[in-house]
Write a protein that binds this DNA or RNA. Structure first.
Lengths: 105, 105
DNA sequence: ATAATATGCAACCTTTTGGTTGTATTAAAT
DNA sequence: ATTTAATACAACCAAAAGGTTGCATATTAT
């Protein structure tokens, strides 16, 4: 799963709300779909997108389907950001060295 | 700028490529648009989306426009992920306490 | 002065996205 | 045995996204 796919999945308000709810604990498709201002089937589509990008896992349990957050995927995207920041810092360091070297000029 | 808006902006391969390039240092609109497999105007639209979501800042300089990564925004979305993880951990802790309390059962 | 470079603005097109409704199926509760 | 609850699947639709081309304008280089 590419970083862009994960971000795209998170980049929709309803889905991000779902992810926030799930960070407090698992849901069934029903409970996760309640209180959002869209139909159950609309919500179901969002859940599928989260599942397709491995942000969430689905487990059938009798007539329920349990939706759980996949921690690895969340961590992955956090790491992506951290890497961006590291590159940034590396660049700033280099700039700093250059500036110091040129102090006398 | 909401977290969802930031993720949406990052959730497109061309734009994420741009962000990665920019983490190594600023570009002009031209240099940032080169080597992508779309037209300059296509690329320009993506840059505008990054600017609108404050991922990037634009500064006119003569006939060039400098594109720079806005570090605060990147940090913000990293923090969002970290918060999700924290909630997760809190939940796991609670579970742990429950499990320990029920050991004898 | 002329040519080349960097950019902006706008119209247009196709595909994807986010949403709906309608119908069917399966599991649990009464 | 019936009803109720939790789902799935599919067709359909409007709006947004990602892309293009064409043309205009302002700097910078020759």
């Amino acid at each position: 799963m590419s970083a862009a796919e994960i971000f795209r999945a998170l980049g929709e308000p309803t889905r991000l709300t779902m992810v926030e709810r799930l960070s407090r604990g698992p849901h069934t498709i029903s409970t996760l779909s309640r209180g959002l201002e869209i139909s159950r089937q609309g919500a179901r589509k969002h859940i599928q997108i989260l599942a397709d990008s491995n942000i969430v896992s689905l487990t059938v349990n009798g007539r329920d389907t349990i939706v759980k957050l996949d921690r690895n995927t969340i961590e992955k995207s956090k790491n992506f950001m951290a890497t961006l920041e590291r590159h940034w810092e590396k660049r700033l360091e280099k700039l700093d060295i250059l500036l110091k070297a040129n102090k006398k000029i």
